[in-house]
Amino acid sequence: MKDNTPLIEIRDLHKSFGDHHVLNGFNMSLYEKENLVIVGKSGSGKSVLLKCIVRLVDIDSGTLNVLGQSIPDLQQEELDILRTDVGFLFQGSALYDSMTVRENLQFPLRRHSKRLQRPDEDKLILEALESVGLAHTLDLMPEELSGGMKRRVALARTLILQPKIILYDEPTSGLDPITAKEIIELILKVQNQYGTASLIITHDMDCARVISNRMIILVDGIDYGNGVYQELAISEDPKIRAFFK
């Protein structure tokens, strides 16, 4: 599975907000077609890490390379181009609530594929929605969708630019167990269909077990544990064991 060149490489990453040190020398690598799950307690800096990767938040120090490019050193235009290769599924879906589902999917498409003809555009939108099983929601507003459906549409919006990496911020949080299971299956299906690498932030251990090829346990701002689920599950370290109880 692993290629030698990581798609995302983070070394000695530090990020603080005032006196609060969130990341204290965090390290990780994400490889092609890999599902890497990062688990950590609430407030441990998982979401901040994802935001650092797409430079929604600036890092204090360390190395952060995505697709071979140093994120802190990129100019805005270069960053915007790179961001089309990195999809981001937000915890609350973040669908644009003044737009229909179709317009939500059109939005990134029109900004990055301006020469697309309307029929080609419609075809791509329909394909993306079909891949998440929601082709019938094309003209609905986000407020008319359930939590699980919103998550699926957000995933379709992420997929429409065919990114190489997808970052998932708590993809199953706030969902009932059945819908959460459907989302997990969808993530696996998407990974097989599109061949993307996924970085998934969660504290749902069921999700981590099913989805991960590899896991990182984030404790005290560092990559405290790193390995496959089965290895970590039998660890004697109390800080790691706490996640598997």
Binding site: V86, F88, F90, A94, L95, D97, F107, P108, R111
Partner: peptide, 20 residues
């Protein structure tokens, strides 16, 4: 409108999709 977009991360979503 903008406040609601900010707290529901819609502004962040716009930014990561490469739109200013």
């Amino acid at each position: 409108e903008l406040g609601s977009m900010k707290v529901t991360e819609q502004i962040d979503a716009m930014e990561v999709s490469g739109t200013n």
